[in-house]
């Protein structure tokens, strides 16, 4: 049972490595942000898997919080890259 969990964790790590290669290669800033986004969601899955491998049920909260923080981080980085100003009001696409 544990072997399957560990194998899946390794597959997730491989995916994270591939995402890192894309983040290093670029070529545009948006490619890098996509790669970091994939890396983040895979981190959530990896933490969830590690929870089951080690049996520490408390670790799942880390995954839960990471899932939310990852989204906010991506949107914030995107805004910073686009406007160079986190306090700027969005002018395009009004609600």
């Amino acid at each position: 049972m544990n072997t399957v969990l560990v194998a899946t964790t390794l597959a997730i790590f491989l995916t994270m490595a591939l995402a890192l290669v894309r983040a290093l290669r670029g070529p545009t800033i948006y490619d890098r942000i996509v790669a970091v986004n994939v890396f983040g969601t895979k981190t959530v899955l990896a933490v969830a898997l590690i929870t089951y491998v080690t049996g520490h049920a408390d670790l799942i909260d880390v995954a839960l919080v990471y899932a939310l923080i990852n989204f906010i981080a991506i949107v914030t980085v995107l805004k910073l890259v686009k406007t160079r100003d986190l306090a700027a009001e969005g002018s395009e696409d009004p609600r």
Binding site: L5, T8, L18, R22, V38
Partner: peptide
């Protein structure tokens, strides 16, 4: 679990192989 991991790796390969940002 195993198919999920396999799809993750396939997605990672696609991230490297697809030609431009929108396809990635």
């Amino acid at each position: 679990l195993i198919t999920g991991g396999a799809f993750g790796v396939i997605g990672g390969i696609g991230l490297l192989r697809f030609p431009d940002f929108y396809t990635r």
